[in-house]
């Protein structure tokens, strides 16, 4: 989808709109984390995306520069820096020349750095929020798929098994609750995990430029959660 989102065509803009909508929360949380109030953060998030979507934002997400996550954080930082500068200028009475947030984007490097040792705590926080958003989207996708198939209850009862195998969850209880045999529950869990795995891959696939980056990105997201 990052590929699709590149360029000025209307469909590119629509694709970018979708991506931004999906990752609104990590941006919002990042701004909160930096010490802003909820209302201010919400307005700022809105403004950021509005301006991002108004400019030809994704042009800078070149394949070699990688991930949409990194791009968005870079753009966000640039946007904040720009804003600060403008605020200063206004204070000094200068005319505010609103620059496109991409211009000179390279100086804040919207390209990508995998675990960047120099990254700030806030960067890690942004990535953590991103990981949660990926997980949330994948869960929602699987859930709505199952609900459409009339298996919403199955999702509710069995989703705790998405954490992997543990003795602390009772399949017998789940089987009783769902009126299934334990064998059928095992099959359903196996399938749920498979669907979730695919949903995560699809979700991450939308934010990277090459399929082979999916695994690497997922590994990184797990790392930032630790």
């Amino acid at each position: 989808m990052v590929m699709r989102a590149r360029g000025d065509a209307p469909e590119a803009r629509a694709a970018l709109g979708e991506l931004c909508e999906a990752y609104w929360t990590p941006v919002f949380r990042f701004l909160c984390r930096e010490g802003r109030g909820e209302n201010e953060s919400r307005d700022l998030t809105q403004e950021f995306f509005t301006r991002l979507l108004a400019g030809s934002g994704v042009e800078k997400a070149e394949p070699e520069k990688g991930r949409f996550r990194s791009y968005l954080l870079g753009a966000l930082k640039h946007f904040l820096a720009e804003r600060k500068r403008n605020a200063g200028r206004q204070k000094r009475g200068g005319g505010a020349v609103v620059e496109s947030i991409e211009s000179g984007g390279t100086e804040t490097s919207p390209g990508m750095q995998i675990p960047d040792p120099g990254a700030t705590v806030s960067d890690a926080w942004f990535d953590r929020g991103w990981a949660l958003a990926v997980m949330d989207h994948a869960l929602t996708a699987v859930q709505s798929g199952l609900e459409e198939a009339g298996k919403g209850k199955q999702f509710e009862v069995l989703n705790p098994w998405l954490i992997g195998d543990t003795e602390n969850l009772s399949q017998a209880d789940a089987a009783e609750e769902l009126g299934m045999t334990t064998g059928a529950v095992k099959v359903a869990i196996h399938r749920l995990r498979k669907e979730f795995r695919n949903a995560v891959e699809t979700e991450i696939g939308q934010t990277v430029t090459r399929p082979d980056e999916i695994k690497e990105e997922l590994r990184y997201l797990i790392e930032v959660l630790s």
């Binding site: 990926v134 954490i163 992997g164 979730f196 995560v200 997201l221 797990i222 959660l225 630790s226």
Partner: peptide, 8 residues
């Protein structure tokens, strides 16, 4: 963490 680790 467990969910994404399992998915990976």
């Amino acid at each position: 963490k467990c969910v994404l680790a399992e998915a990976s």
